[in-house]
Simulated scan of single mutants.
Amino acid sequence: MTVISALQKTDSRTSYQSFIEKNMTISPEKARGIGEAIGNKMNTVLMKVSKLFLVEDTMASIKFGIFLWFLSCVGKWFDTITLFMIGTVMLFSLPRLYEDNQKQVDEILHKVSEKLHQCFIMVKTKLESRFYQKEKTT
């Protein structure tokens, strides 16, 4: 707009002039606050990741391992671009499908969540009994 106004010899202001003139700096106090917030979030994430990898919570580590295994299987089947295309289609179609069939989907999800909960309880009890037996013998 500056070049056009110079060529036309007019004194027109750009629509972005208010943004150009506005002070867009961040105060040191605000920067410190943002840095502390980012640091706190990073520490929380690092603590959770270390608990997963160091197997402090056995069930969470098993769930994470199964999730990584599932991702590796999906990665073998599909290319990255294909996954992005499938994800984009699902992003716009699944909400509509859920709205149209909400009652049936809720019933199925409830049954699946109950079965998964039963499976997790079974695996947890077997793992705990196995670990408890090892500790008892030593």
Rank of each mutant, 00 (worst) to 15 (best):
Q104C: 01
L97N: 10
I4D: 07
M47L: 08
K136Q: 13
N43T: 09
K76N: 12
N40F: 04
I20M: 07
H110C: 03
L109Q: 14
S12W: 12
T14H: 11
R32G: 02
Q102M: 04
L68T: 03
S27W: 03
L71R: 11
Y132F: 09
D100Q: 02
I34K: 12
L116A: 03
I108H: 05
V74F: 09
Q102A: 08
D11T: 09
F84P: 00
T44I: 06
G75W: 04
R96C: 06
S18I: 00
A60F: 03
K48Y: 10
T82G: 01
K115E: 15
I66S: 06
K111N: 10
V89C: 03
W77V: 11
V45C: 10
C119W: 13
V3Y: 11
G75C: 04
T44R: 12
V112S: 04
M85F: 11
G39H: 05
V89F: 12
E128P: 00
S50H: 15
E114Y: 02
T88L: 09
T58I: 12
V49Y: 10
I62R: 05
F131P: 00
S113F: 07
F120V: 02
G65R: 12
M85P: 04
T80C: 01
P28K: 13
C119P: 00
S61G: 02
Y132M: 03
G35R: 14
K103Y: 11
L116S: 06
F19G: 04
C73F: 06
P95Q: 08
V123R: 04
E56Q: 14
I20E: 10
V105E: 03
Y132T: 05
S72D: 10
N40M: 13
K48L: 13
P28N: 14
S5E: 06
S93P: 00
K126M: 15
S72W: 06
L127Y: 09
D100I: 00
K48F: 09
T138E: 14
R96H: 08
I38Y: 13
W69S: 14
A6E: 09
K115L: 12
